[in-house]
Simulated assay, not measured.
Amino acid sequence: MVLRQWREGLRDGTRPSRALLAAPFTLIAVVTVVDINVPPEVHLGPFLVAAPALTASFAGPRLTACVGAVAVLAQAAVALTRSSIHDLNHTYQIAALFLISAIVTFFAHLRERGTTEMVRLRTVAEAAQRSVLRPLPARSGPLHLASFYLAAEAGAQLGGDLYAAARTDAGTRVIIGDVRGKGLDSISGAAGVLGAFRALARQEGHLPGLAARLETSVAAHRIDSLNEQDEQDEHTDDPGITEAFVTAAVLDIPDAAPELRLVSCGHPPPLLLRSGRVHALDATEPGPPLGVGALSPAGPTQDVFSFRAGDMLLLYTDGVTEARDRSGRFYPLAERVASWSGLGPGQLLERMRADLLRHAGGNLGDDAAVVAVERLAAPGGAGPAPARSAEAEDGR
């Protein structure tokens, strides 16, 4: 128990428990009592060094210095009890113990300073995450939403995957995307796409028009990145990545009609959960990723699918479906989701998150983002069903 608390304290920087704090003092007491009672030719004083060394691994410099001082006093008590404080052997032991205690106290100071800096950086990262990737609202009109984000990089709070929802006069617009690459460039790209979506979602009435304006924004960001890369390449022999694009799915879910509109920009198709069955909403003519729209002169096109009361929509990035287990098998998203029918968005994603991490052994190869959207109640003025239904897609 104490060892586990020690490991957890090192990992998250929290204060150690009382039981853990008692460990070095218990060690000093045990060594002192035994050292006093063993034969004269046996010396256990060097074991006292373990007390301040152990303390330095989980506590700050003050407590480490305190434990070191107690250890030195204990060694002096042993010397007085067994022979004399002036005994050469005990004198060397006391001096060595004092010196080692001072050294480990200094290292405890360095560790505490590093931990403080790490906590500060983690706080800044979490604030940046909340600013860039804002939590989705639990409700948006007749919709119930939930989401989760898993960064592949250890210790990271944010990566290149993105999602957002915006409320409009007629319904809710949602985007999910994946910026090519990793690191700061992908985070910058994700922030740019999210900023553009939030600014344009309420301005552009036509969904393909919104996707086209997002394409323009990402393309402009790509040109700026290329210009910056050219400047860097002039001063280095190691040119960086000069390509940037974003796969995305942009959706418009009206309040007054049991349907959803989808513009796919090279993104994995959403999954529709209905009556225990899973349907992939494949776009008729998926467009290229945002940032390379010049490859498709026709511009973005939208598909319309039925989305009735009780339906659940699952949006995800390829970090989910490309997660592998130890044998190299991909995560069977559709199969797992079908087995969890009847759960709400929050419960579904909670189970899916745990199952995904278990499948990947706790280490994802890529960032993973998932959004679940459930229509809670059919609007009173719902119109006729759209031309393309989920059942029709499933029967193709």
Rank of each mutant, 00 (worst) to 15 (best):
V304D: 03
I241T: 11
G13A: 07
V42H: 07
G344P: 00
Q93M: 08
A152T: 09
A65T: 14
E8K: 03
L184Y: 07
Q232A: 14
M312F: 00
V119Q: 12
A199C: 06
E374V: 01
L162V: 03
H144M: 11
Q232L: 14
F98S: 15
A69P: 05
R375T: 02
D233Y: 03
P16I: 08
D169E: 15
A96C: 14
L48I: 05
G114N: 15
Q203K: 11
F58P: 05
V33Q: 03
L136S: 02
A166M: 13
A152N: 09
E8G: 02
L63R: 14
A392N: 04
A125N: 07
A257Q: 14
H206R: 13
L376W: 01
G328H: 09
V292W: 06
A29L: 15
S84R: 01
V337C: 03
L315N: 06
R130S: 12
A354K: 14
G365L: 01
E322G: 00
A164C: 08
L295P: 07
A323V: 06
L121R: 15
A369V: 05
E350K: 12
A294Q: 09
G141M: 01
T168V: 08
F107Y: 15
R173L: 03
V193W: 00
P345T: 02
D366R: 05
L194E: 09
L184T: 13
G205N: 12
L315T: 05
T242Y: 01
F148K: 09
I175H: 02
R351H: 14
G380K: 01
A298K: 13
D185N: 10
L272H: 03
T105E: 05
T284S: 13
P289V: 11
P289Y: 10
E41H: 15
L3F: 10
D325C: 06
D238R: 12
R7H: 14
S275A: 13
Q347L: 10
T321V: 15
F47Y: 08
A23I: 04
R173T: 04
E8A: 13
P39R: 14
C66R: 11
P286Q: 01
A212M: 02
R375Q: 02
L133N: 05
L348Y: 08
L3E: 10
A51L: 05
S225A: 14
G383S: 12
Y149R: 02
A79K: 07
Q203Y: 01
L80W: 10
G68T: 08
G310E: 06
H206P: 01
A138V: 11
A377I: 08
A95Q: 06
S147R: 13
Q75D: 11
F47H: 01
A338E: 11
R277M: 06
N363M: 00
P52R: 09
Q93R: 14
S225K: 08
V292Y: 07
L356V: 03
L10H: 05
V72E: 04
A77T: 08
L48C: 04
L290K: 09
A392Y: 04
A248R: 07
A220K: 09
L210E: 05
A309T: 06
T91P: 00
D35W: 03
A95I: 10
E204S: 06
V263K: 02
P286D: 00
P16Y: 07
H206Q: 12
A196K: 02
L73G: 08
A108E: 02
L184S: 13
